[in-house]
Nucleic acid binder design. Structure first.
Lengths: 127, 127
DNA sequence: TGTCATTAGATGACACGTCATATAGATTGA
DNA sequence: TCAATCTATATGACGTGTCATCTAATGACA
């Protein structure tokens, strides 16, 4: 027997899902169309842009729900796209520093505007 | 220049993402471990269980953020797992009715309990 | 009735995420 | 100093989602 409380829970969950998919989808489509990068790529750019320098992969991993291997592959793509560079790190040669390239910084500046705009449009919207 | 309002937006967005990933991940792992189905499979089972009979693919598509083709493949898997059956529909032979098998109904009953429990644990939690 | 457009659903190529594992460097302790 | 262990990151096999397209059935209209 389904309880009323259960229905509320399920509805709350659907709201979260719906907000998430609507927003993520909208951002992803626009970033893809205008800047040729996906949402995950943008979020990494955004984190790296924020941390300026001294940004290790490991630290990034803690600021995103992405898996370590997903992160590694996203960075691969960003690097292939010439938006980010991996700098090997002297005091621990297993680590890598990430740094935006000039192209990366430029693209991030524009994409961030689109990103914030879409967040605003979608998060304030009724579910 | 980054505005304070933007930071709030981005934080709100991260909260949604985090709630979504934490909850979806927890449910998915548990359903996978105990019942050998994923979250999407469960959600379809759950919708079909709710709609009882007269449940067309098309209608399902409107109640989930899944793509039509994703839905088709999820139903494939559920059918292969013997949990659901596709019944062809007399008055429109392009349509299909979906129906839980006995195994499907049994699994859904158990899985729904786990599902609701995990929703409760995760949605009430602080982000 | 015959053609054209539309609709329900399936499918194949492809992209991406995940898990398990590999690799290489760091650290510990005998 | 060597072996064992641990840690940071990369990689390959695999599953699943997406987009574009296909097929078959329906509807509309001349």
């Amino acid at each position: 027997m389904e309880m009323a409380q259960d229905r509320e829970l399920v509805e709350q969950w659907r709201d979260i899902q719906s907000a998430y998919f609507r927003t993520a989808g909208a951002i992803d489509r626009e970033l893809e169309a205008k800047f040729n990068i996906g949402l995950n790529e943008f979020e990494i750019l955004d984190l790296v842009a924020d941390n300026a320098d001294a940004c290790r992969m490991k630290q990034l991993g803690q600021r995103t729900p992405m898996t370590q291997s997903a992160l590694s592959k996203v960075v691969d793509r960003l690097q292939k796209a010439g938006l980010i560079s991996r700098q090997s790190c002297e005091d621990d040669r297993r680590s890598l520093f990430l740094e935006l390239t000039d192209a990366g910084r430029a693209l991030h500046a524009d994409a961030a505007v689109a990103h914030r705009t879409l967040l605003q449009e979608n998060l304030s919207q009724p579910s």
